[in-house]
């Protein structure tokens, strides 16, 4: 009895932590479960029967797959530009001298600290005032996504750059590499993991954004906006199929890159 109690005392934090993880994981199980749901009515959200129809007929609900395509396109384009602009800024901030550093820091920090609703409302106010309200759509969403992804790219790449061991670059210089060679053969390969995680982060932020997108989308429908609209009419279970696919892709990406790093670490 006392032994059991002592064991419980020693592991209480871990047991509690596992319950919290259960709280975080349960909704993901539900998403996977609901992707096999055969709903009896469009109004409730209960598991009524098992079917694989949702998986074989993913694109049946009107606009569902086209909204996913739109989100993918915006995600890729916004990630590309945000990663480029953000990486340049990160290099400038870590490696170069320029005036106005603290202003630049503030400019990068503020978008991350603002509630999304305010960011979205500001952009919409700008577009309305510029008489651009009629042209809201794909490109205004793109503009918004680049804006809010940029700061996250800067801090992610900056963290990687700051952590680089300067002696590697000094060694390259000692071995008569010029500045450009050092950059291409030493610095860039070392920073690439930071750039890749910044790009993945931007893509997931962009793909998942609803609040800012909704305000600046006009008639364009992204995947989160599709789900929002469907929630008022009755949700097709296929959105859970998309959710499950996203989860599996992201999980394999993260576990895969972890495994890759471990293999590399062993050979190096």
């Amino acid at each position: 009895m006392t032994r059991a109690r002592r064991w419980l005392g020693g592991h209480a934090v871990m047991i509690f932590a596992l319950f919290v993880l259960l709280y975080m994981f349960t909704p993901i199980f539900v998403v996977a479960l609901m992707s096999f749901n055969d709903p009896a009515s469009r109004l409730g959200y209960d598991f009524d029967g098992f079917t694989i129809d949702n998986w074989t007929h993913v694109c049946d609900p009107y606009q569902l797959c086209s909204s996913v395509t739109t989100s993918l396109k915006i995600g890729l384009l916004a990630t590309g530009l945000a990663t480029l602009l953000g990486t340049l800024m990160a290099f400038a901030m870590v490696r170069h001298h320029f005036r106005g550093r603290s202003t630049a820091n503030l400019l990068i920090f503020l978008p991350m600290a603002s509630p999304e609703i305010v960011l979205g409302a500001s952009l919409l106010a700008l577009f309305v005032n510029a008489n651009f309200a009629g042209q809201l759509g794909f490109w205004t969403i793109f503009i918004a996504h680049v804006m809010f992804c940029l700061s996250f790219v800067v801090i992610t790449v900056k963290a990687r750059l700051v952590g680089l061991d300067p002696s590697l670059e000094q060694a390259a210089a000692d071995l008569y590499a010029n500045e450009w060679q050092t950059f291409i053969r030493i610095t860039l390969p070392l920073v690439v993991p930071g750039i890749v995680s910044a790009a993945l982060l931007s893509f997931s932020l962009s793909f998942d954004d609803f609040i800012i997108t909704n305000l600046n989308a006009g008639q364009t429908v992204t995947f989160p906006m599709y789900v929002w609209g469907a929630a008022q009419r009755g949700i097709p279970m296929q959105v859970n199929v998309i959710g499950t696919i996203m989860f599996l892709l992201a999980l394999s990406l993260v576990l895969g890159s972890g495994a890759l790093r471990r293999v590399r670490g062993r050979t190096a």
Binding site: M24, M34, V239
Partner: peptide, 22 residues
């Protein structure tokens, strides 16, 4: 740590909907 960020692997709206079920 991966488990902590796992909820982010699926869509915000879709995972919120699952609380409707729960």
């Amino acid at each position: 740590l991966v488990a902590v960020i796992a909820p982010f692997f699926t869509s915000f709206l879709v995972r919120t909907l699952s609380w409707k079920f729960l």
